[in-house]
């Protein structure tokens, strides 16, 4: 049963990844990449890595893809964005294939001995939240402060300069 799901999600991940890199339209590519991330998240979930699975969806499929799409749209005319198929492509693909071959060789040759076993609760929601809200609660709060400063800074830098003092411009 587990093997079935593994091949299902694994196969889908590979297929969607292939579709992603063969699309000519950047926005379509981005959506296929989201599908790919969702399948990878399912693989993580099958490995009982709940936290990584959730983060995969929240951060990669969520935040980072939204960011990609924003950038693509800000650049304007997303339909006309042709992905670069320059002369470097053969070189890049050769290097990639070689790297992949090397990795596969190493993985198949590795003797599986002495991997430290990790407890079942490792990476679970309970364990992550204990780290985050008990052990590192102070730094959790500092992160909040850091984000506040980043927002103040970003708003200040991104907003149009206020012109005169007397011109009654609104406050942010």
């Amino acid at each position: 049963m587990e093997a079935l799901f593994f091949y299902l999600f694994g196969g889908l991940a590979v297929i969607t990844a292939l579709v992603t890199i063969t699309r000519r339209d950047a926005v379509t590519s981005a959506f296929w990449l989201i599908a790919c991330f969702l399948n990878v998240a399912a693989l993580f979930a099958m490995l009982s890595a709940q936290f990584i699975a959730v983060m995969q969806i929240l951060i990669y499929a969520g935040a980072i893809m939204v960011f990609f799409l924003f950038v693509t749209m800000f650049l304007g005319e997303p339909r006309r964005v042709r992905l670069n198929r320059g002369r470097a492509i053969p070189l890049i693909s050769t290097v990639t294939v070689l790297l992949l071959a090397y990795l596969l060789m190493r993985i198949t040759n590795t003797q599986h001995r002495g991997f430290p076993s990790i407890s079942d609760s490792y990476g679970s929601v309970a364990m992550v939240s204990r780290k985050l809200l008990v052990d590192y609660v102070f730094l959790f709060e500092v992160t909040g402060l850091l984000l506040l400063v980043a927002v103040i800074g970003a708003v200040y830098v991104a907003r149009k300069p206020r012109t005169g003092v007397g011109e009654g411009e609104g406050h942010v």
């Binding site: 590192y136 102070f138 730094l139 500092v142 992160t143 402060l145 850091l146 400063v149 800074g153 200040y156």
Partner: peptide
């Protein structure tokens, strides 16, 4: 971890101050 976070807290403030 605390070094990294506080360094960023300081730096982000100073980045914006430099461009104020």
């Amino acid at each position: 971890v605390s070094v990294f976070l506080s360094l960023e807290l300081m730096s982000i403030g100073v980045y914006v101050l430099a461009a104020i």
